[in-house]
Amino acid sequence: MFISQALAATEEASGTPGVFPPFDPASFASQLLWLTLTFGVFYMIMSRVIIPRLSGILEVRSDRITRDLDETQRLKAEADAALAAYEHDLADAKKNAHSIAMESTEKAKAESSAAREKVEAELAEKMAEAEARIAEIKAKAMSEVGTIANDTTSVIVKDLIGGKLTNAEITKAVSSLVK
């Protein structure tokens, strides 16, 4: 109250006395002029400075969000591709491992059977050799048995009867005995 009284004392109240102030035409010109000036300046500041700034800020942000979303999409696709490649490689590796195992088993089997065959062949050869020698020795022995028998017979006959037999008679006798 004191403040407004003090203000009222220092300021000259304008307008027509006894007229409701908002409807006092005496104040219209001044208010219109100042409204035009202030609102004009306000409109200029808003349309030239504030609105371009704000729309710029919002545009930059929405661009940024769009770009970030695109980047996310791209990275996700990359990750998916990497996962697919990994899975593919893993499947390949599994398949390879299987085939390698099969191959080496086959190879080992083949090698061992080849080795066995070789050993068997060698053994068979050696056996044949041995048999041949045995046969040879046997034949030799058999042939020598005849000679020994003749000799022995001639010696025994000589010792027993003091006679002397021809080789042909002895051989004939021995072979008839051997039969």
Partner: peptide, 20 residues
Amino acid sequence: LKTYIPLEIGGMDISFTNSA
């Protein structure tokens, strides 16, 4: 309305008031 700076152009009161 209270007039702070009285102004007048061509008989029109365009004072700088508390409204201004």
